[in-house]
Each structure stands twice: as structure tokens, then as C-alpha cells.
Design a protein around this nucleic acid. Structure first.
Length: 597
RNA sequence: GGUUCCGUAGCUCAGCUGGAUAGAGCAACUGCCUUCUAAGCAGUAGGUCCUGCGUUCGAGUCGCAGCGGAAUCACCA
């Protein structure tokens, strides 16, 4: 890598010239801003004091020394304290030649013995359909998994379905009362939406009951607890936990509907899992851990029998782990599932893609795992992401302001269709091919829209404005790819083969051409940095930058129109490598690229 | 109230380990399709990087304080 060579050379020169000891990796090397001449810039300010010379002098001294040491460096200039190196065109052209046909460019395979990195994401409740917030979770989870895999990790994707609890009982109860035996088949409604409908139905009647009780003079808090529907739902949960066959059968039936619905949504989103855990199977895990914690003395029991972990030493509160009736809570379950997952996979790292509303929960989870003596506690990483907000605030299912996942995908497909018809470039495709294209573009727009934003930040979605297809968007990148593929197809028709050895040693790159190559050159480093930061957004922004550079090059540089056959072939090769880079980065985002559009 | 996260152009967002005159897209305005896909390209306009203090040769980036927004602090999950 040229970057390392430069850093090494600068470090050596610093020692030889001034006796300054600097580790190569501490030499700040950055790409030169485009308003200056050069490709890489070294900032020399940090050394002027020790060198006892002016920044310009230090820059010139270092530049003169480095150009002798690194054969790829063709020139340098110094402006103020900035030492700009130019890299010879031959290096860039050689770089392109070496990447031609490399379908894995930028990607690192996992070592055969790499321990798994387990990524949990999605983790839906089974009482309502998925909404835009879940979409962000699913896309992030999938993409981060792909990103880590692209950076050499052995990734396992897992889903922990929250399939039991009071929420599903509410849906079940409402269905029994008001459903008249309605099924997905009889209603033509997707299973998850049908069950969600009864969850809303429950809430409606429950609220009526509460307000009736309040009218009779009961305190609202009390009314919420005493409403018959709530009592009945709790009763149902108890019967579920006792294994009551009637309840379990109904539960299985309705959850089955939901899973069929979820599968459909997952399929459309293009996400999937290596393993699916169900909370009904794991919710009792963790109790043994609590006992172990009591034995170790890191947990304590209060007079009423409840069990707690004292985290005041860590600046937090006490955390409940077992209720006084001995039942477990969310944290207890998560302790259990963490251990289960660690044991199932022999995992190197456990990553949880969960919204930032649970920052506190995961902080506590890690602490307690540590107190229980698991040395892998620090391998738990909470990939916390911000909320998706609407123009008037957070999505609230009770207020009917959620953006439904299925509806959104359908709308995006309709928009894609509209855009395609407007452009009228695909009239000769079959109906199936067109549908496929609409889907690819719709999902490309949606995924890019969501993934280009830094996970840590809340993001805004305005339902009144459809997601863009122009500018910094998924379709922009898809379009760039389709254009390149068109060129490569035409080149093949002209019998230009990518593997040709070219006689281009006299060719000097033009600025646009060099800019594209330099951007391509950054791909491996970008993926590494993005993976370290668990940030698909960095990959998305890189891909946009590459596509933008390419389009600018494409606009005013002849490719197939180039008269010199070798230069023409070289540019076709460059196109092919750019296409591959776009393909590999978009794959990390879960975005498909069309051959034409 | 405690803790955590966020605050960059009218709007949506970039800005990696501190480095040169803070960048894109959308929206507005100008040009460019008889030539490789105009879902594109080139340009104009748009900034108190929330505020203040500090560290540094150098701060959008680091520290402290304040302001604004969000989340969380359940015997819910």
C-alpha cells in the first residue's frame, strides 16, 4: 500500500534529517484537497519545533528525501506546512490493471478458524406488523452483518422473537371476543396485520372500560388495573405459562399467522437469519444465573424475596432480576440468552442491534455479566441506533401515526414504476422483468435513504414527500452502475477483452480519470474503517462519492469513443473495476444493482 | 432532577484518527441531450458548524460550563 510506504518514508526521513523518532502510523497522511496539486498530503507542523526549522523548510527537506525513497512518488510541493506528494500515473494504472476481474475487491474473507460474531437484530413482538422503525433495525442489522463479514468476520445473524407475554395475550383475547373466527384466509389480510388489528381492538375496548370505571368514580390508575379486559388478559397469560392447552393452541395459531406475515416482509426487505430464537423457549433461562450470582454474593435478596443487583458502585441504581414471586424479568432473560448464544456459537463477539431507548438496559447487561464472572462480558456490543421520527415527532402506534413497513414498500414500488414509465427506457422488458426492476429500485431508494444516515442519529422521515430517486440516493448509484454495464456490454461487442495487456505507459491520466482511480483505491480502507465503526453509512457515502466521481469522468472523457485503442481498453477496464466496487459496496448495504434501467 | 445521545446551509444529511478557503443532495436560479443511458453533468446563490470559555502551532472535531431537542432512570419488554 502506497500510504504505508509514504508514512514509513516520512518517518525514516524525520530520523535521518532531524533525529526525530516518529512511529510511521503517527504520520498524518491525508488525501490532498482537490484545489491543491498532489495526491497525498503530510502535515509537517508537528515536527517543526523539534526540527528547529520553518514549516516550508521541513516540508522541502522531507519531500526531497521521500521522493528518493519511494519510487512511486513523482513529484512534491510544499504550501505552508503542507507537503503534497504526487504519485506517478504508472502506479495508478498498474493498480487498475491488478483489480480487473477481482470480484472480491475490497472484501476480506473470514479466516477458516475465525470465531463467530453473532449479530442479533429485528427481534419483533408478535402482536403487530413491522413499521418503519423496524425497517431501520432490519436494514442496519443486515448491513452491519454484511459489513463485518466483508471485513473478515465470521458472522452469524440471529433473531430473537418476542413471541410471548401480555401483549400477545391482548391480541388473542380481542380475537376471541370480537373476531368471529376471522383468519388471514377468510379476510384476505396478511397474518401480522390481522393480529395487529386485534391488538388495536383490545386497546379500544380496554380504554372504554377504563373510562367507564373512572366515570363511576374510580381513580384512573386503579381503573387501568381493574378493567375486566386487563384482568382477563393477565389471567390468560397465567394460563399460558401453566401450559393450558386451549390457550397454547390459540397462541400457536395466531403466532403462525404472524410469522407468515413477517416472512413475507423479510423476503421483500431481503433480510434473513442463520438462527431464530423464540422467547417462549428462552424466557426461563437466566434464573440459574441469578442463583449463581447469589452464591457468588454479587446479587442479593430483599426481605420480600425479590433479587437485585447493586450497581450503585458503577454509578447506577439497583436492578431487579427476580420478582418477589420468583418470576424473571427482561434482564434475567437477556442474561440467559446471552449465555446461551455464547455457548451455541462459541462467539467471539455478541452484537445487539437495538434502538437507543435501551442504552441503559445494555449497559446494565454488560455490567451484570461481568459481575457474574463471564470474561466475555466486554465482547457484548450494543449497536445503538436512533429513532425514526416523523415531522410531528415520534411514531406512536396508539395514535395511528406509524408508517407500516409493507405499505411503505408497496408505495416505493409504485413510485419506482412511475419514475420508470416517465423515463420510458424499459419498454422492451417483459412484465416480470419490469416488476423486478421496480422492486430493485424501490428497495435501493429505501435502503440507501435509511443506511446513509449515521446509526447514532435520529432520522426524519416525511411521509408527505416520497423518498427521492435523484441526487444522493440509491437509484443514483444504481443508475451509474447500469450505465457502466452498458458500456462494458458494448465493449464486449467490440471484442474489447478486459484481460488484454495494454500498452499505455505513455498515457498520462486526466484529472477526472485519476480522481476515479484514487477513489477506487480507497475502498479497502473505507470498509475497514466502516467495520470498526459499525457504520454502513460510511460505506453508503463512499459509494456515492465513487459514483459521483465516475459520472463526472463519464461526462467529459471519451471511453468507447476514445480513438487510441489501448487507452480505450484501459478506460473500459477502469469502468469494470468501478462497477465491481459499486457492486461490492451495495451488496454490503443489501442493495441490488440492475444491469439496465 | 440524575445519566446517555444529538445540535453543521431554508430542508435532509456528509465531514475517519484535531490540519489548508466547512462539503453533498433537495428546494431556487443558469447552461448542457443529431455523440458511450440527461435517474446525468457543469455553474450561481445559500454558513455565528447552538453559545461561551479552555487545551493546541492549528478546533466543526478534544475538555469544561451553559442553551435547545431526544431517550432513559418500571416487580413492562
Amino acid at each position: 500500500m502506497i500510504e504505508k510506504k509514504l508514512q514509513q518514508a516520512v518517518a525514516t526521513a524525520l530520523k535521518n534529517l532531524y533525529g526525530i523518532e516518529a512511529a510511521p502510523e503517527t504520520v498524518t497522511l491525508q488525501t490532498t484537497k482537490k484545489e491543491f496539486n498532489g495526491d497525498y498530503t503530510v502535515v509537517v507542523f508537528p515536527y517543526v519545533k523539534q526540527a528547529r526549522k520553518s514549516p516550508e523548510q521541513v516540508g522541502n527537506d522531507l519531500g526531497a528525501a521521500v521522493i528518493q525513497m519511494v519510487e512511486e512518488v513523482s513529484d512534491f510541493n510544499v504550501i505552508k506546512g503542507f507537503l503534497n506528494f504526487s504519485v506517478a500515473d504508472s502506479y495508478w494504472m498498474q493498480f487498475v490493471a491488478e483489480r480487473v476481474g477481482d470480484t472480491a475487491y475490497g472484501l476480506t474473507n473470514a479466516a477458516p478458524d475465525a470465531k463467530p460474531v453473532v449479530v442479533e437484530y429485528s427481534s419483533p413482538n408478535t402482536n403487530k406488523p413491522l413499521h418503519l422503525g423496524h425497517i431501520r433495525n432490519n436494514l442496519l442489522g443486515w448491513s452491519v452483518s454484511e459489513l463485518l463479514a466483508a471485513n473478515g468476520a465470521n458472522v452469524k445473524k440471529v433473531n430473537l422473537v418476542n413471541d410471548r407475554g401480555i401483549h400477545i395475550c391482548k391480541s388473542m383475547l380481542a380475537w376471541l371476543r370480537y373476531g368471529n373466527g376471522e383468519t388471514p384466509e377468510s379476510s384476505g389480510m396478511k397474518g401480522d396485520h390481522l393480529v395487529g388489528k386485534y391488538y388495536v381492538e383490545f386497546d379500544k375496548h380496554y380504554k372504554e372500560e377504563v373510562s367507564a370505571l373512572v366515570k363511576e368514580g374510580m381513580e384512573e390508575e386503579e381503573a387501568k388495573k381493574q378493567a375486566p379486559l386487563m384482568l382477563e388478559a393477565q389471567q390468560m397469560l397465567k394460563r399460558w405459562e401453566e401450559g393450558d392447552k386451549e390457550i397454547r393452541d390459540l397462541w400457536s395459531k395466531m403466532n403462525g399467522w404472524v410469522y407468515a406475515g413477517f416472512d413475507e416482509t423479510y423476503r421483500r426487505l431481503g433480510v434473513g437469519f442463520d438462527k431464530i430464537y423464540y422467547e417462549s423457549n428462552t424466557y426461563l433461562l437466566g434464573k440459574e444465573l441469578v442463583q449463581k450470582g447469589l452464591d457468588l454474593g454479587v446479587l442479593f435478596r430483599k426481605e420480600d424475596g425479590s433479587v437485585w443487583c447493586d450497581l450503585t458502585g458503577d454509578g447506577l441504581d439497583q436492578k431487579l432480576l427476580l420478582r418477589r414471586d420468583g418470576t424473571s424479568v427482561y434482564m434475567t432473560q437477556d442474561l440467559g440468552t446471552a449465555l446461551l448464544r455464547h455457548n451455541d456459537f462459541g462467539a467471539e463477539q455478541l452484537i445487539y442491534v437495538v434502538g437507543n431507548e435501551q442504552d441503559y438496559h445494555f449497559k446494565v447487561l454488560k455490567l451484570i455479566l461481568g459481575k457474574l464472572g463471564f470474561d466475555w462480558a466486554d465482547k457484548v456490543y450494543h449497536l445503538s441506533y436512533g429513532m425514526v421520527e416523523l415531522p410531528n415527532g415520534k411514531m406512536k402506534s396508539r395514535e395511528g401515526t406509524v408508517v407500516d413497513a409493507d405499505d411503505l414498500i408497496t408505495e416505493m414500488e409504485a413510485t419506482a414504476e412511475e419514475m420508470c414509465r416517465e423515463h420510458g427506457k424499459n419498454d422492451d422488458l417483459t412484465e416480470d422483468q419490469r416488476r423486478e426492476l421496480y422492486h430493485i429500485l424501490a428497495l435501493g431508494a429505501l435502503k440507501y435513504f435509511i443506511l446513509k444516515v449515521d446509526p447514532a442519529k435520529n432520522m426524519l422521515f416525511n411521509p408527505a414527500e416520497s423518498i427521492d430517486f435523484n441526487g444522493n440516493t440509491g437509484p443514483f448509484i444504481q443508475y451509474t452502475y447500469a450505465r457502466i454495464r452498458s458500456i462494458v456490454r458494448k465493449a464486449e461487442e467490440q471484442c474489447i477483452t478486459l484481460s488484454d495487456k495494454l500498452n499505455i505507459s505513455n498515457h498520462s491520466l486526466d484529472d477526472k480519470e485519476r480522481a476515479v482511480i484514487k477513489c477506487l483505491h480507497d475502498l479497502p480502507g473505507t470498509i475497514a474503517t466502516a467495520a470498526e465503526n459499525f457504520s454502513p453509512a460510511m460505506v453508503a457515502n463512499y459509494a456515492y462519492d465513487l459514483a459521483k466521481n465516475f459520472n463526472s469522468f463519464y461526462q467529459d472523457t471519451p471511453i468507447l469513443r476514445e480513438e487510441n485503442a489501448d487507452i480505450k481498453a484501459f478506460r473500459v477496464q477502469l469502468c469494470a473495476v468501478v462497477a465491481q466496487a459499486l457492486y461490492n459496496t451495495m451488496k454490503i448495504l443489501g442493495i441490488q444493482l440492475p444491469e439496465r434501467m
